[in-house]
């Protein structure tokens, strides 16, 4: 396995890092969409995330990483009940992937050589309970996008083809990255991502120098570099674990709920997903900060991440949607 650049060693890009941490605390927030120029560390951050996340316990050799023996799908040949720990799966969905690879399909090898009708699980099965990463998500073919939308929504993958009828759990956090200059994303898919972040190259010379410096020492001696950053990574991991425990006990006042609704109404965000994400992400942030209740400050910090991609696109509006969110937040939350 290749050694990844440590998460905590990524210079700047605080919003992107925060968004990823929040989804690790509460996967129900939905995915993260990272849009930005080439060479700003998008892929690096996602790959680093895998090493950062706490391990999960799975049934050995289960094709969908089930936690309990009863969840192991019946089409799987696997009958062991033994558990083991493994790292949270982070699955790459390459562009131009065929539908069969994504959903899984008839195992042609076995069909042809042994004449057996068996199911070969696809990437969705592999990504269950973990992350599905799509680089250049805006270039993904439409039919794959539709399929992902459907599964991300239902948390279940249903395969009906070549005489197979199979279903399995497919709950994953979608992480997409892309360059908006190369093409846009359909609003339906945009809305499906919980948080969105825009990344740019750091403008500060000192930051840029330290990007180069860290990358250089990483390339020179990967092991040493990773050991150096291990304590930092560990701090974040423990923060995530602690926040997961705290999450349930975060109190939310009625007043804050009203703020959420007000904000979404003012911005004209479509659907109720905006409010829900705002609330969940806000709570996750409160838990990460070790607070006991959700406060306005949290909403304020989260609003641009949770709402800027949900606004109705106005072709005649020159200002970016981020500005609109900030303006509305300032108006309502003071």
């Amino acid at each position: 396995m290749s050694i990844n650049f440590p998460f905590s060693a990524i210079v700047g890009q605080e919003q992107m890092k925060l968004a990823m941490i929040l989804t690790a605390i509460d996967p129900t927030i939905g995915g993260v969409l990272v849009f930005g120029d080439r060479g700003t560390g998008k892929s690096t951050a996602v790959r680093a995330l895998a090493a950062l996340l706490p391990e999960i316990s799975v049934i050995r050799d289960c094709p969908v990483n089930s936690e309990f023996a009863k969840d192991v799908p019946n089409w799987s040949a696997n009958r062991v009940k033994e558990k083991r720990m493994r790292e949270t799966p982070v699955v790459d969905l390459p562009l131009g992937v065929s539908e069969d690879r994504v959903t899984g399909a008839l195992d042609i090898e076995r069909a042809l050589t042994k004449g057996e009708k068996a199911f070969q699980p696809g990437l969705l099965a592999k990504a269950n309970r973990g992350y599905l990463y799509i680089d250049e998500v805006n270039l993904l073919e439409d039919h794959i996008v539709d399929l992902l939308l459907d599964v991300a929504q239902s948390g279940e993958n249903l395969v009906e083809r070549e005489g197979l009828s199979i279903r399995h759990a497919a709950k994953f956090v979608l992480i997409g990255s892309g360059n908006p200059e190369e093409g846009e994303l359909r609003p339906q898919l945009l809305d499906r991502f919980g948080l969105s972040v825009e990344v740019t190259s750091p403008t500060n010379i000192e930051d840029r120098i330290s990007v180069i410096e860290r990358r250089d020492s990483f390339e020179r001696n990967r092991k040493r570099f990773i050991n150096k950053w291990k304590p930092e990574d560990k701090k974040i991991r423990e923060g995530i674990l602690k926040a997961r425990n705290n999450l349930k006990s975060i109190k939310t006042a009625k007043k804050i709920l009203r703020d959420c609704a007000d904000l979404c109404l003012t911005l004209g965000a479509d659907g109720l997903r905006g409010e829900l994400t705002l609330l969940r992400a806000g709570r996750a942030l409160a838990a990460y900060e070790g607070k006991t209740s959700l406060e306005r400050a949290h909403l304020k910090a989260i609003a641009p991440l949770a709402l800027s991609h949900r606004l109705r696109r106005d072709p005649l509006d020159e200002a970016g949607s981020g500005t609109r969110v900030n303006r509305a937040t300032a108006d309502i939350l003071g």
């Binding site: 120029d37 060479g39 700003t40 190259s201 010379i205 120098i209 180069i212 990358r215 250089d216």
Partner: peptide
């Protein structure tokens, strides 16, 4: 290489409007 080399390369990249980190790297 020393930090000063990196500084030179980053500054130079900045002068020519090279915004990604890949250039200096």
């Amino acid at each position: 290489s020393v930090v000063n080399d990196m500084r030179k390369l980053v500054l130079l990249a900045e002068q020519f409007g090279i915004s990604t980190a890949r250039g200096p790297l």
